[in-house]
Amino acid sequence: MGLSKKISLFEGEKGNIIKITDLNIDGIMRRRLLDLGFVPGAYVEVLRKSPLGDPVAFRVSNTSIALRKEESHKILGELV
């Protein structure tokens, strides 16, 4: 897998599955994301955008979690 395939969760299209590689967020939000299963190595599916385009819902650990653009564009991964 080359670097070219690395995208942020926010850039993912509906139906994409992304394997998380980096979490470029610190502090409590990072802890919260970890608790929810956004850990490096986890597979995340892009589920749907909300009617106004943001937030976006993702499937992680078989649950749907919505994240805002501010966070989801800082979570990077490889398109699977």
């Binding site: 608790d35 299963g37 992680v60 650990s61 078989n62």
Partner: peptide
């Protein structure tokens, strides 16, 4: 039971 992985955490 439907989201066991996160719950087991």
């Amino acid at each position: 039971a439907t989201a066991l992985e996160r719950n087991l955490n």
